[in-house]
Structures are given as C-alpha cells and as structure tokens.
C-alpha cells in the first residue's frame, strides 16, 4: 500500500505523458496530412465516394419504404358490379359486407357519381358528353379494418366477394405494391453487397496509402527502432493517419449525400404534390451521420492495421 501510494505520482506522471503523447500523435498526424493537401484530398475523396454510394442507396430504399408504407394505409378492394346493377342493390350488398369482421368500411359509388368523378379527373368531359348512356358500373370500395396492412390478408375476402352474383370483377390494388416490396427487398440485399464491396475498397485503399507512407518513412522507422521505440509507438502515427482518412472520408460522404438529397428534393416534393401526398425525403439524420463517419473511421483504421501489420515488421534496422 505504502509502496503504491509512493509510486502514485510517477504513475500519474506517466499516464499524463502517455495521454499527452496520444493527443500529440493525433494532432501531429493531422498536421502531417494537411501538409500534403492534394494527396490527402484525393485519398479522402475516393473514400468519400466509396462511402457515399451505399449510404445514398440505403437512403433511397429507406425513403421508398416510407413512401410505400404511407400507401399501404390506402389498401382497399375495388368491387365492380355488373352493368345492370342499380344503386339500391349495391347499397344492400354494401350493408351485408359492412357486417363482416374483416371489413372496415364500404363506400358505394353509383354510376352517376363515378361518371362525374371520371369527367373531373380525366379531362375527357367533352368526349363523355357524346355518350348517350353512362357506361360505368356501380363500384363498391371495400377497405379492411384499421390495423390490417398486409395485402395478403385481404385475399380470402376478395375471393368471397368475387363469387357474389352481382359482382362483375374484383380488383385488389395491391399486386404492384407487393411487387414493389419484393423489389425493395432485393434492392436492400443488393445494397448490402455493394456496401461490403465498397467497404473492402475503403480498407484496401487506406491500406495501400499507409503502405506507401510506411515505405516513405522507412528511415524514420529504422531510426526509431534503433533508439528503442516499441512496435506500438511506431505503429501509432500510421493508425492515427488511417483514422483521420476514415473520418475525412465519412465527412465527405455525408456532404455528398446531403448534396444529392438537396438536388432531388425539389422534384420529389413536386411529385409528392401531384399525388396529393405530403411526403418529404428523409436525410441521414444525426444517427446516420454518426454511423457514416464511424464506419469510415473504423474501416480505415482496419485498413491501416492490415498495412502496419504486414509492412512494419519488414523494416528492421541493420
């Protein structure tokens, strides 16, 4: 105990020196990088692009998923009745349907209403005026109860409605949605593959840059080994250099993604406006930003570890 307390100050002194050395290495590696701005910018730029690509693709899929989720709430079955069916009959059918558990609401659109709606939305007003009689059937719009979001859950209901005598045909407007989901799932897998490949590219790029750095500083490494520099001491500036490359690459990627987002924001808002939707693009957010920079730093750190592990031992003073 007495011994420990006596050695306390020197232990703290050493810790302080150690921390100071780490801080110093971090700053001095940053300083060294800033003294070769062109080379540093090129490396950081390459890393930024490699990191931005999967991040941007991920955002695209994320946004499409959010968008399709908002469409899902509009899940419904359009029931087209046979041409001769009148509104009272349609109302009667609607009433029986409303009694079911798996039906939330039923709206009846009579032929006249349907024609008015069509006239308004299609712009064929003048052409429709030439028609002697209304060709449109009555339609029931059947929506599932709140909480049902999967298109598959509507399949049994659709089958039953289809067999009803007054029903001409039934349209479940979800097949394209299901396809979209399937495509999104594939896209997501694809992004993982792209992300892994580009992640490897980041590791290799940084590894190669650090390898060249090690070769250029061969003499310094030799001398440091000669005067008793430990492996950890010699490794440190290279690992920190890799770390800074990663942080720089991550920041660059975040900026690139922000720019891309900014570029498509206007058109997307206009498109959403056309669909009467208030949908807005979501960006990286703080979490995404942190993940991007963190991933960059981690991958680059790993790359410099590989280079350092492979090439530092080769340099022995003679």
């Amino acid at each position: 105990m007495a011994k420990a307390s006596m050695s306390g100050p020197t232990v703290f002194g050493r810790l302080g020196a150690w921390a100071a050395h780490h801080g110093h290495s971090l700053l001095s590696t940053l300083g060294r990088l800033s003294r070769a701005p062109v080379a540093t910018a090129m490396t950081v730029g390459v890393l930024g692009i490699a990191l931005a690509l999967p991040a941007a693709l991920h955002l695209v899929v994320d946004n499409m998923r959010a968008l399709s989720n908002s469409w899902e709430s509009a899940l419904h079955i359009s029931v087209f009745l046979k041409p001769g069916v009148r509104v009272p009959e349609a109302e009667a059918l609607a009433t029986t349907l409303r009694a079911r558990d798996d039906v939330g609401s039923v709206r009846v659109i009579g032929p006249d209403e349907a024609l008015a709606e069509f006239r308004e939305q299609s712009g064929f007003g003048a052409a429709l005026d030439t028609l002697r009689e209304n060709p449109l059937p009555a339609v029931l719009v059947v929506a599932p109860p709140a909480g049902i979001t999967s298109p598959g859950a509507l399949e049994p209901l659709r089958g039953e409605i289809e067999r009803h005598a007054a029903v001409d045909f039934v349209q479940l407007d979800t097949q394209w949605l299901q396809r979209l989901f399937a495509i999104l799932a594939i896209a997501q897998r694809g992004i993982i593959v792209v992300a892994v490949l580009l992640g490897i590219a980041v590791v290799v790029t940084v590894g190669n840059t650090i390898r060249l750095d090690i070769q250029n500083r061969r003499q310094e490494i030799e001398v440091t080994k000669l005067i008793g520099g430990s492996d950890a001491f010699i490794r440190r500036p290279f690992l920190y250099t890799g770390f800074w490359y990663g942080v720089g690459g991550g920041l660059t990627a975040a900026i690139l993604v922000a720019f891309a987002l900014f570029a498509v924001e206007g058109p997307v808002a206009r498109l959403a406006g056309l669909y009467g939707s208030g949908f807005t693009l979501s960006g990286l957010g703080m979490g995404g930003f942190g993940a991007l920079v963190g991933t960059g730093a981690l991958l680059a750190w790993a790359g410099s570890w590989v280079a350092v592990g492979r090439h530092l031992d080769e340099i022995e003073p003679t």
Partner: peptide, 11 residues
C-alpha cells in the same frame, strides 16, 4: 528528443 519521446518522458 526522440529517445525521450519514445520512452514517454514528459514534455
């Protein structure tokens, strides 16, 4: 100063 830096001697 290099041998001192390597040995972790304070500034």
């Amino acid at each position: 100063a290099l041998p001192l830096v390597v040995a972790g001697i304070g500034h």
